[in-house]
């Protein structure tokens, strides 16, 4: 190639006389940086959960603790219903996203509102379970890791709910469109992650 090395590749279409500021940034990847950032953040979240699951493994397998602790019982059925509630919130979220992509604002609003309400219900049931489960984190290592894992997950649900709430408020203010829906999609991925993580938590804590 010749002289092109030092050339402005992107000024060709531009009126050089009126050019201000830097050239438009070159995009070297098809993934949005925001989307990529969220995916990387989720990987780091998986590692945080990994640390807590390691603690679970040490208590239950390495130390061989009885599970659940003697004299306690975990409400497997209620938590199962709660699991169904949380998983259905993923479906309604998907409905909301598909709706906004098709410019169906009513479907979008209904979907996102329903998702938020289902998430809040999950958190409410979880807190209710804490009140009635009959042991405290200080009682024994089993209690510690029970509250540790479900509490870590609950904190993520709470953060996810804050995101969903802001999306809901913006949805009712008429934000987002078929072209501009990254603000729904990216928090949505986080919410799906919270759901999937709950399946793992539920399986290890309540079922196994």
């Amino acid at each position: 190639m010749e002289a092109a090395g030092a050339l402005a590749h992107d000024h060709d279409h531009d009126d050089a006389g009126h050019h201000h500021g830097p050239p438009p940034a070159n995009r070297s990847s098809r993934v949005d940086p925001q989307m990529l950032g969220m995916l990387l953040f989720i990987i780091s979240e998986v590692m945080v959960f990994g640390a807590f699951f390691t603690a679970y493994f040490f208590i239950r397998v390495v130390q061989g603790a009885e599970w659940p602790a003697a004299g306690t019982e975990l409400p497997v059925a209620i938590a199962g219903v709660n699991t169904a509630i949380l998983l259905s919130s993923s479906l309604t979220l998907h409905w909301a996203l598909v709706s906004i992509k098709n410019e169906d604002r009513n479907g979008f609003r209904a979907g996102i509102l329903l998702t938020t309400l289902l998430g809040a219900t999950f958190l409410f049931v979880q807190i209710n379970e804490y009140v009635h489960v009959g042991f405290a984190p200080q009682d024994h290592a089993q209690g510690t890791i029970f509250y540790g894992l479900t509490g870590l997950h609950g904190a993520h649900v709470a953060i996810g709910l804050l995101l969903l709430l802001s999306v809901t408020i913006r949805a009712f203010r008429g934000h987002y469109s078929a072209k501009e829906h990254a603000g729904v999609e990216i928090p949505g991925i986080y919410w799906h992650f919270v759901d999937v993580m709950w399946i793992v938590v539920y399986a290890t804590i309540y079922i196994l």
């Binding site: 780091s44 979240e45 590692m47 945080v48 959960f49 990994g50 640390a51 807590f52 603690a55 040490f58 208590i59 390495v62 130390q63 603790a65 984190p137 200080q138 024994h140 290592a141 089993q142 510690t144 890791i145 509250y147 540790g148």
Partner: peptide
């Protein structure tokens, strides 16, 4: 890093909220 952040959180709750992650006498390790 998140693993260390998690571990430090466990240590924090052990120190202040009476949890037993690192306390063998209560089943921790």
């Amino acid at each position: 890093l998140p693993v260390l952040a998690g571990a430090a959180t466990l240590l924090l709750t052990d120190r202040h909220f009476g949890t037993a992650f690192f306390d063998p006498s209560q089943g921790g390790d």
